[in-house]
Amino acid sequence: MAAISTCGVNFRAGGKSQRPPPSSPPPYASLCPPSSVSAKTPKLFFSSKLSVASSNSCISLRSNQTLFTPRLGKSHGTALVVASAKPEPLKIMISGAPASGKGTQCELITKKYGLVHVAAGDLLRAEIASGSENGKRAKEYMEKGQLVPNEIVATIVKERLLKPDAQENGWLLDGYPRSMSQATALMEFDFQPDVFILLEVPEGLLVERVVGRRLDPVTGRIYHLKYSPPENEEIAARLTQRFDDTEEKVKLRLRTHHQNVEAVLSLYKDVTLKVDGSVSKEEVFSQIDLALTKLFEDRKATSGTLAA
């Protein structure tokens, strides 16, 4: 019966469990010397799953989360491994000024790439509602009209990013970090993005987008008097404007945003993708999609470098 041995991996061949010697190379580095299987050199590929059978035996190997599938030929016992590597999931941060279209792009990105959408504000509100220790501490600061300390928010974000779905599928961190201290806290937790997307929109257009926004208190839908007007007069009559959606207040918010984002960019300058956010949402997403597709394809190619 043919046998294949690897380092530090239990495998089954013909129903018997064996433990290879510790001096063997790692399973993804090589198979056994040709003499143990065949004089013909086998091909080795990365694989996310392994399950192979020949006419005489079934062999399965697992190393970490990579599974290999050797197959023994009928006449020569040649080992052939067929595999498809699963690339490392994407880790993305996205930033943009108020009314830059960040929310829309987050929806489009997560829909296509299957990433876990993580918004710090939503996490904070959920934490408070849950009554957790961090939630209670955050609520105390908010009730006093104070900002929630960075270490509390960073801890909440860290715990979310460490959940299995985010680790397996990748994540899209929305609007966070917003300051150097927040970015530093994430770096201390060893969270680094593959891409930091920055939506750039001229200030005049941002002001126009914000000042023209209106809220329907009945449905919760957001309209815009110019770009997305209400369907009828009945809806138009009940629309309201947020208290901070005035030109004076939005300009103040924009100044704060620009100051903070410049500090954050200094940490992520090597992975920053600046996107023109003044065009249509489809055109904005096309710019983002082009960059992410290239990154994803490069990662797939890298993960298969051991393929022969």
Results as ranks from 00 to 15, higher is better:
139 K>G: 04
193 P>C: 00
264 V>H: 05
230 P>D: 09
272 T>N: 14
211 V>Q: 03
305 T>M: 12
76 H>N: 15
98 P>Y: 11
78 T>N: 12
99 A>Y: 08
71 R>P: 00
154 A>T: 12
130 S>E: 04
155 T>V: 08
20 P>Y: 03
151 E>A: 12
18 Q>G: 09
164 P>W: 05
120 A>P: 03
304 G>P: 07
133 E>I: 10
182 Q>I: 06
226 K>H: 04
268 Y>Q: 03
306 L>F: 15
296 F>T: 07
123 L>G: 05
153 V>M: 13
94 I>W: 07
301 A>I: 08
284 V>S: 02
25 P>M: 07
42 P>E: 04
173 L>F: 12
83 A>S: 14
149 P>G: 04
104 T>P: 02
250 V>Y: 00
265 L>C: 08
170 G>I: 01
289 D>G: 05
145 G>H: 08
60 S>P: 08
112 K>I: 09
291 A>W: 11
208 E>W: 05
54 S>Q: 15
187 M>W: 13
291 A>H: 14
260 N>Y: 09
256 T>R: 06
153 V>Y: 12
130 S>A: 09
101 G>M: 01
244 D>H: 03
127 E>G: 02
305 T>V: 13
189 F>P: 02
55 S>K: 15
104 T>L: 01
220 G>P: 00
209 R>V: 05
116 V>C: 07
